[in-house]
Amino acid sequence: MPLWLLIIGLGLATFLTRLSFIWLFQHWQPPEWLKRSLRFVPVTVLTAIAIPELLLPGGDWMVPFANPRLIAGVVAILVAWRSRSMLLTILAGMAVLLAASALLL
């Protein structure tokens, strides 16, 4: 299999995966429980992407109090909860990350 075929095949497979349910739901009524579970997709998937970035930076476990990313993430969660502002959340998280990294090293 030549390299360009791999790229095209992978591109096609990725596109079809992304199209899958957009296409399927047009032709098939999903059961009620499935429809209702869809509202949990963003909060579960985005959390499942973010949390390992805080707890397992680079894929390794770090002692919580010595882990700048975890400290920054906890602060960001509190700021997001109180302010509901994306800008404030990013600024607070990055500021705490830089400060904690500097202090803990």
């Binding site: 992407i49 973010a50 993430g73």
Partner: peptide, 13 residues
């Protein structure tokens, strides 16, 4: 690291 922060900002509210 801004990406997990943004996901936090999108999820928490």
């Amino acid at each position: 690291f801004t990406l997990p922060l943004i996901f936090i900002a999108l999820v928490v509210p």
